[in-house]
């Protein structure tokens, strides 16, 4: 009972049934954040592809996202939720997702666990930076 109060049902669901668990072979970008000293470690893998819009322009879209996490229930649920939120989104859209959006999508996190959603956001930023760094320079707009 106490644990149900500690975490929302959404958090428990993502903790017990994490979405997009695993890694991606030849990922477009990888973000590894956190360390055992701070308690949690997240690894986020992204597959980013170009997609034609209806107007004939090309957009970069997160085709796939996977994660691996060392950490508490909230850390696992936050990474799982982050992958759910960014999959299928354009880079522009994904960048707009805040840590609060992750926490909200999870039905809230206890105050002591808010940093878990921050870590998920950092993992995304780092994975995107990794992708940008590895892109051939001609592609950078």
């Amino acid at each position: 009972m106490a644990i149900e109060k500690l975490y929302s049902q959404k958090v428990m669901d993502h903790f017990l049934h994490p979405r997009n668990l695993g890694s991606i072979k030849n990922p477009s970008g990888v973000g590894r954040v956190g360390n055992p000293v701070c308690g949690d470690v997240m690894e986020l893998y992204l597959k980013i592809e170009n997609k034609k819009t209806k107007k004939g322009k090309t957009e970069e879209v997160i085709k796939d996202a996977k994660f691996k996490t060392f950490g508490c229930g909230a850390a696992i649920a936050s990474s799982s939720m982050m992958t759910e939120l960014i999959k299928g989104k354009t880079i522009k859209e994904a960048q707009k997702i805040t840590n609060l959006a992750v926490a909200e999508a999870l039905g809230g996190l206890p105050p002591v666990k808010r940093h878990c959603s921050v870590l998920a956001k950092e993992a995304l930023e780092k994975a995107l930076a990794d992708w940008r760094a590895s892109k051939p320079s001609s592609q950078i707009l």
């Binding site: 644990i3 903790f15 017990l16 308690g39 060392f70 950490g71 508490c72 229930g73 850390a75």
Partner: peptide, 14 residues
């Protein structure tokens, strides 16, 4: 090794 205690306690409780 390689996993976190609170996650274990939470999962064990379930």
């Amino acid at each position: 090794k390689n996993i976190e205690g609170e996650a274990i306690v939470l999962a064990m409780d379930l």
